[in-house]
């Protein structure tokens, strides 16, 4: 256990957030030889600085952190909201900007949001979608899909979709139109609730260093 306390374990998601997170962490001295999301090694260590990286599937990062298998992690706010894990949300890292929205086929657009009550919605984010529609006083049928959400209305699986959008290109290409924005999302630094207390000094200085780098970059 003593050795466990010496190490700081960081969970990073594969995919687009990986490179941005790794680059930012490197700037404050948190890196390891061979750190890449293409690596076949799942744990990459820096013995000298007592850092370990876990590279995992995006949706699993909050799980690693909640259970304490990783002390901290980087994850999109969208995934964080969807999984509702009990973790510290320490820092808005600014990158990975996207927003969650509801879109419908342009040709069949209805007048009001309420006109979609009791219809089917295809989404990768059923929890967030349910919470949103509940706040609007709407009941929907949620169809959980794991990818190519835009396909839902095209093949008649659903009347609408709830999904994340970065540029809107995919929506346009599929003749879909955003009708309501649900949530803005960026990458967040999260921490296990016990690690944050037991390794407070180390995690706190990491957060402060990251904040400085982010502020300097924002100022440029």
């Amino acid at each position: 256990m003593k050795s466990e306390m010496e190490y700081l374990t960081i969970a990073l998601p594969k995919g687009k957030l990986f490179g941005l997170s790794a680059r930012l962490l490197e700037k404050i001295g948190y890196t390891a030889e061979g750190l890449s999301d293409k690596s076949r090694k799942l744990i990459i260590s820096n013995e000298e600085k007592k850092i370990r990286f876990i590279v995992s599937k995006t949706a699993d990062v909050p799980t690693y952190v909640e259970y304490g298998a990783a002390d901290i992690g980087v994850i999109g706010k969208d995934v964080l909201l969807e999984t509702e894990k009990d973790v510290y949300e320490l820092l808005d890292m600014g990158f990975g900007k996207c927003h969650l929205m509801m879109a419908v086929p342009k040709a069949e657009k209805r007048a009001k949001l309420m006109d979609y009550n009791h219809t089917r919605v295809a989404t990768k984010f059923p929890h967030i979608a349910e919470k949103f529609f509940r706040q609007q006083g709407m009941q929907m049928e949620y169809i959980k899909l794991n990818g190519s959400i835009e396909l839902g209305p095209i093949v008649g699986l659903s009347e609408s979709i709830v999904d994340i959008v970065e540029t809107g290109t995919t929506l346009r290409e599929n003749d879909l139109e955003e009708i309501v924005s649900i949530q803005e999302a960026t990458a967040r630094l999260i921490a296990n609730r016990v690690s944050f207390k037991l390794k407070f000094d180390r995690i706190h200085s990491l957060v402060e260093d990251l904040r400085k780098v982010l502020e300097a970059e924002a100022a440029q």
Partner: peptide
């Protein structure tokens, strides 16, 4: 250790509060 920002889940606390953490356990 002192943790002045500690918030316990039950709102009936009125003064000193504490939590104990151990390595290896996530809560």
């Amino acid at each position: 250790r002192f943790d002045l920002g500690i918030i316990r889940d039950f709102s009936y606390y009125t003064g000193m509060v504490f939590e104990v953490y151990a390595p290896g356990l996530g809560y």
